[in-house]
């Protein structure tokens, strides 16, 4: 049982939860994630560790509501407990001082990007962060990102905040302006695909953090598999970060939809019951 000690909404559908997990707090590094199960009947879902406090023995998760489990999580309050939390899982981000790092995050990818931005900054890099969202209200963690970035560029589809356009427009602007040594991208698969195509044009090494469907998170089931450079990899143990120029994003997008109908039905049922 892991108690929720703090909860804060960033927007209607995005919230931060600080939960007790002393052992994970101690051993986690940027890029790591946990798998949680809310209660006896819950499913196991992966969530990136956005931060930790070793002294208090807590980790921070930032959750975006997309379906049943994320909705149930956001309905929990301070003092409630999450039944199971296991981690830290995955490989930590390879962080070194290499010069200028361009970080591109969109949608649900912004939360997992935060600890990576922080890590690169603390390692002495120049960090430029491009945050993209459909509209102003969906931009999250802007202040936290500014704290660890030399510059933050906001992009919205409708131009309601920052500049109008897609994440790739913001990225290209930076790449044309100055030398970028590497790029990190986290977000919806389609966004990462185009981010990767953009940096490929300029030959900039790029890592993408993949958010596939998972069950155990320990390499036991293969639900999370993706093709990278023509080889099958398990995101939970071989990743979650891979060379974005080698990832088969089409396949990944298709696999993300593998349970779509069942998930949609379950969500409808959940919303009905919640009424």
């Amino acid at each position: 049982m892991n108690k929720i000690v703090e909860k804060e909404f960033f927007s209607e559908n995005v919230a931060k939860l600080v939960i007790e997990a002393p052992e994970i707090a101690k051993s986690r590094k940027p890029g790591h994630f946990v798998i949680i199960r809310i209660d006896e009947r819950g499913e196991r879902i992966p969530l990136t560790i956005a931060g930790s406090d070793i002294e208090k023995g807590t980790i921070t998760l930032v959750i975006q509501k997309v379906g049943v489990t994320s909705a149930k999580l956001l309905a929990l309050n301070e003092g409630d407990a999450i039944r199971d939390v296991v981690g830290p899982l995955g490989k930590a981000t390879h962080i070194e001082n290499i010069g200028t790092v361009l970080c591109a995050g969109g949608g649900v990818g912004v939360a997992p990007l935060l600890p990576i931005v922080e890590g690169f900054k603390k390692a002495g890099n120049r960090v430029i962060t491009v945050l993209a969202a459909r509209t102003k209200d969906l931009i999250i963690l802007e202040d936290q990102m500014r704290e660890f970035s030399d510059e933050v560029i906001l992009m919205t589809d409708d131009g309601s905040s920052g500049r109008k356009g897609l994440v790739t427009a913001g990225m290209e602007e930076v790449i044309k302006r100055e030398k970028v040594d590497m790029c990190m991208t986290i977000g919806p698969a389609i966004m990462m695909k185009f981010a990767a195509l953009t940096t490929k044009k300029y030959n900039i090494p790029t890592e993408a953090s993949l958010n596939t469907i998972m069950v155990d998170g320990t390499g036991m089931c293969g639900a999370c598999r993706v093709s990278v450079g023509g080889k099958t990899k398990f995101v939970c143990v071989d990743g979650p970060e891979f060379d974005a120029h080698e990832v088969n994003f089409e396949e990944m997008m298709s696999r993300l939809g593998g349970y779509k109908e069942l998930e949609a039905k379950a969500y409808e049922k959940y919303l009905k019951n919640a009424e």
Partner: peptide, 10 residues
């Protein structure tokens, strides 16, 4: 890796 193909473990 098509959908609907899974390991027995999964």
């Amino acid at each position: 890796n098509y959908n609907g193909i899974l390991s027995s473990n999964e």
